[in-house]
């Protein structure tokens, strides 16, 4: 009952904060064991994450992306649908955005960027919708189907990077037109737009789940579909809509990566952000109000981990190890209250 436990029994705010502190601390310890001197390299960790405008911009962008993928896990999870497909939905969104940007082509404009965002959200939602349909229509286990669809999404993306618009050197598509972008903010570039999207989704997710009748139906459906049926909460419709909303959030994350970060569909564009989002959502015990907290924790681990690896001359894989350690610690420190 591990996952459903997490879905239905969010623990208290303070406990969550303590867990964040513990998980970050323990992860630093693991990094120490991996040969990174966390004390002497703290200054470079600081510079590499928040300490200068350039790295701050990177950390904030990653944080925004993780906020979006965490929302992609959180909303369906609360409705009882274990969406492990944030990764694939993100790639679907990124692919959708790229297709729009490259199809409309030069010269490009802000309006094209807006269409990219909308199409990416629709693509993410539809990609999630496949698993949702399989679940509602045939009872296919969503854990398996969302996970498997991630691989399918990668293959579809690969079709575009290798066949439709291949770049001459790297495994990616050609770049999207420069003008297809949001207005830039000096040395922060378009990062503020990424942050803005994340803040909007954060606010909407919180408002929807905690302050609307529909939000209560989402939580009720997650806890007891039978009782939800009895009270007339239309659990199937509620769950399907939640999955679509989650997929749209992941798709938006894909659009952010295309427009703000990569400017092209890169084969490993997702950087595991879809999976990290799940970890972030679990870290904050599925409480939408805390989304940025979970996102900043993982953004700092993944961005800072890379910096530390560079400074200490160990493999950059350590940041992935760090994230994995975090996930294990999260599951291990999960509150057991009321599990009977």
């Amino acid at each position: 009952m591990a996952v459903s436990d997490l879905m239905t029994r969010p623990s208290r705010g303070l406990t969550v904060v303590l867990r964040v502190v513990f998980v970050v601390g323990a992860t630093l310890f693991v990094l120490f064991l991996l040969g990174i001197n966390i004390f002497t390299s703290f200054p470079s960790f600081w510079r590499g994450t928040l300490g200068n405008p350039y790295s701050l911009a990177i950390t904030l962008t990653v944080m925004a992306v993780i906020t979006l993928t965490a929302a992609a896990a959180l909303i369906p999870f609360r409705a009882g649908f274990v969406n492990l497909g944030g990764e694939g939905q993100l790639v679907a969104g990124a692919t959708g955005a790229t297709v729009v940007a490259l199809t409309i082509g030069e010269p490009g404009s802000v309006w094209v960027a807006i269409v990219c965002v909308v199409v990416a959200m629709v693509a993410g939602a539809l990609w999630a919708g496949i698993a949702s349909f399989l679940y509602e229509r045939f009872g296919a286990n969503e854990v398996i189907s969302t996970l498997m669809l991630n691989f399918v999404a990668f293959t579809v993306a690969e079709y575009f990077t290798s066949t439709v618009w291949p770049d001459k050197v790297a495994p990616q598509t050609i770049s999207i037109p420069d003008a297809t972008n949001f207005p830039l903010f000096g040395k922060f570039g378009s990062t503020p737009w990424a942050v803005l999207f994340a803040v909007i989704v954060w606010g909407l997710a919180w408002w929807l789940i905690q302050r609307t009748n529909f939000g209560f139906r989402i939580k009720a459906t997650g806890e007891s579909p039978m009782a939800s049926l009895r009270f007339g909460y239309a659990p199937v419709r509620t769950r399907v809509i939640s999955v679509f909303l989650g997929g749209a959030a992941a798709g938006l994350a894909g659009a952010v990566l295309i427009l703000v970060v990569n400017r092209a569909l890169v084969l490993d564009i997702s950087q595991s952000y879809g999976y990290v989002g799940i970890a972030a959502a679990l870290l904050i015990a599925l409480r939408p109000a805390l989304l940025p907290l979970g996102a900043i924790a993982f953004a700092m681990i993944s961005v800072g981990g890379n910096t530390l690896a560079a400074v200490s001359k160990v493999s950059p894989t350590v940041s992935l190890v760090a994230v994995s350690v975090c996930v294990l610690l999260l599951l291990a420190t999960r509150s057991r209250r009321g599990s009977s």
Partner: peptide, 10 residues
């Protein structure tokens, strides 16, 4: 009750 009447975590 647990199946039809209540949401325990609400």
């Amino acid at each position: 009750r647990l199946k039809w009447d209540v949401f325990r975590s609400a």
